[in-house]
Computed example of a mutant assay.
Amino acid sequence: MSYNLLKGKKGIIFGALNEMSIAWKVAELAVEEGAEIVLTNTPVSIRMGTIDELAKKCNAEVIPADATNPKDLDELFTKSMEVLGGRVDFVLHSIGMSPNVRKGHSYDDLNYEYLKKTLDVSATSFHKVLQSAKKLDAINEWGSVVALSYAAAQRTMYEYNDMADAKAMLESIARSFGYIYGREKRVRVNTISQSPTVTTAGSGVKGFDSLIDFSERMSPLGNADAQECANFCITLFSDLTKKVTMQNLFHDGGFSSMGMSYRAMSQYNKSFKTCDDCE
């Protein structure tokens, strides 16, 4: 059911790769709610994924851009305004990647060149997106920019590795840039700390299935899935949240407020019945 929450609005969606992507779900729902959109990803991701199918479904143009390259971003915003017939109203940053995770480097044995790449792709790119948009005055007053984060920015999560540092930096950028963008242009900037979600990127984290199960047991409402995250994104793009900015908003079924749940404790106690020598 559509509520026309984004009727007449225009936006740019970063990071849709395939149907598993949160960005894919956001794009579909944004159009369903009345928006016109442009889709973007790196050229290699466009070749690897199925974004052309999404573009056809959403009647959207795909504009290749490397979010770590300021020149690409300037061209993206300029061309998007041409395609959409004016400034945009919302932007989704759904980008993250860690070479250290992909290569199996533990956090106490990082490759620092890989770390630079992790931070550039997963966090600094957010600053570059915001800086390019502000420089080109590409976002309308009361526009909304949202980036996807995770609770590892505040808590240590087993094997989340240097992506945790990137998420912490991402959230800091939202606060620092959000103040400037809000003060000068009335543009709001927020991050969503989403439940661990089955995506192509997330599945690369060691023990991800166990992490999802643990979060499910800990969260009183259970994990939020990709479609539910899309729903939340749409509310932040809409005029219903015009005064929400510089926030990291937890969308995790209550996980972030939990210490120990009954379900998690029950599973923990069961482990001792099958492991006499565990320490």
Rank of each mutant, 00 (worst) to 15 (best):
D120H: 07
K79G: 07
E53M: 12
F232H: 09
N269L: 13
Q194N: 11
G11P: 08
E171T: 00
V44S: 14
D109T: 12
A67M: 10
F237D: 06
M218H: 01
V145F: 06
S266N: 13
D72F: 06
S94A: 07
K135I: 10
V146C: 04
G11C: 08
Q267Y: 15
R102L: 14
S195A: 07
G86M: 02
F208I: 11
M163N: 00
M265C: 14
A264S: 08
M258W: 03
K9Q: 14
K103P: 08
A166P: 02
H93K: 10
P43Y: 01
G204Q: 13
G207K: 01
A35I: 11
N4L: 15
Y150C: 01
Y150M: 00
T42R: 05
G104L: 08
L76N: 02
H127E: 06
K116N: 14
V38F: 05
D213M: 12
F255Q: 08
G34P: 09
K56Q: 13
A151P: 13
S98V: 14
D162A: 02
L119K: 00
E171F: 04
V44A: 14
T274W: 13
G11N: 06
M163I: 02
D89K: 05
G254L: 06
H93I: 09
N190Y: 05
S215T: 09
H127L: 09
A152D: 11
V26H: 03
Y158R: 12
I173T: 07
P70Q: 05
K7L: 10
L17H: 04
I46P: 05
A27N: 03
G85V: 10
S195T: 05
G86Q: 00
Y160I: 07
R217W: 07
M97W: 13
V101M: 06
T200R: 11
L130R: 03
E228Y: 10
L39C: 01
K135R: 13
S266I: 15
L130E: 04
R155G: 07
D276H: 14
T197K: 00
V62D: 01
N223E: 02
T199C: 07
V129A: 04
R188T: 08
V31Q: 08
S45D: 15
K206P: 12
S215H: 09
Q154Y: 15
A264Q: 08
R183L: 12
R188W: 09
E184D: 04
R155Y: 11
F272H: 07
I51E: 06
V129Y: 03
F208E: 03
N100L: 04
G34A: 10
K56H: 10
A138T: 01
F177G: 10
K116F: 10
S257D: 12
M48T: 15
G49N: 03
E53T: 15
S144C: 12
L236Y: 06
C229G: 10
V244A: 15
P64R: 02
L130I: 05
A16I: 06
Y181C: 15
M157W: 12
T78C: 04
Q131I: 11
S125K: 00
K167F: 00
G254R: 03
G143C: 10
L17V: 08
G259V: 13
S195F: 06
G34E: 11
D209M: 09
G202T: 00
W24S: 01
R263Q: 13
D72S: 04
S125F: 00
K135S: 10
A201E: 06
R155A: 10
G204S: 11
E159Y: 09
